Computed example of a mutant assay.
Amino acid sequence: MNIFETHEGFSGRFAPAAAGETLQSLLMLAGDIRLKLGRQGYLLGSYLSLFLEGALR
Rank of each mutant, 00 (worst) to 15 (best):
L29T: 06
G31E: 14
E8I: 04
E53C: 05
I3Y: 04
G54N: 15
T22Q: 12
A30S: 03
M28K: 11
S49N: 14
L29Q: 14
S11W: 04
L26E: 08
L56C: 10
G12C: 06
L26Y: 07
S46M: 11
R13L: 10
A15L: 08
I3K: 01
L27F: 08
A19G: 02
L37S: 02
F4A: 07
M28E: 15
E5P: 00
Q24H: 11
L48K: 01
L43F: 06
G31S: 13
A17S: 10
A55T: 12
P16M: 07
Y47V: 06
Q24T: 14
S11A: 12
K36Q: 12
L52P: 07
S11D: 09
M28F: 09
Q40M: 05
M1S: 12
M28V: 06
A17L: 06
A55W: 07
L27K: 05
E8P: 02
N2D: 09
L43I: 08
A30C: 01
L50V: 08
R57Y: 13
A17M: 06
K36E: 03
L37T: 01
T6L: 02
L56A: 14
A15C: 05
L35Q: 15
T6N: 05
L43C: 08
L23V: 07
G20V: 09
H7S: 14
L44S: 01
E53S: 09
I33H: 01
A18F: 03
K36D: 03
P16H: 11
Y47P: 00
F14H: 10
L27W: 03
E21D: 12
I3M: 04
A15H: 10
A15T: 09
E53Q: 11
F4S: 07
Q40Y: 04
F51Q: 14
H7A: 11
R34E: 00
F14R: 04
A55S: 13
L44I: 01
Q40N: 10
S11K: 05
L27Q: 04
P16Q: 10
G12K: 03
P16A: 11
F10I: 01
F51G: 03
G54V: 04
G9S: 08
S11E: 11
L29I: 02
F10D: 02
S25P: 01
F51S: 10
D32H: 13
G45A: 05
H7P: 04
F14P: 03
S49K: 10
E8L: 02
A19N: 07
R39M: 10
T22F: 06
A18R: 12
A55I: 09
I3V: 12
L29C: 06
L52N: 13
G41W: 01
I3S: 02
H7K: 11
F4L: 09
E5C: 02
Y42P: 00
Y42Q: 11
Q40I: 03
E53V: 03
F51L: 13
L48S: 01
M28W: 13
N2Q: 04
S49Y: 11
E21A: 11
T22H: 08
L27P: 02
L26M: 13
Y47C: 05
L50W: 13
A19T: 11
K36P: 00
L27V: 07
L37C: 12
G41E: 01
G20E: 15
A55K: 12
G12M: 08
T6P: 00
L50Q: 15
L23F: 12
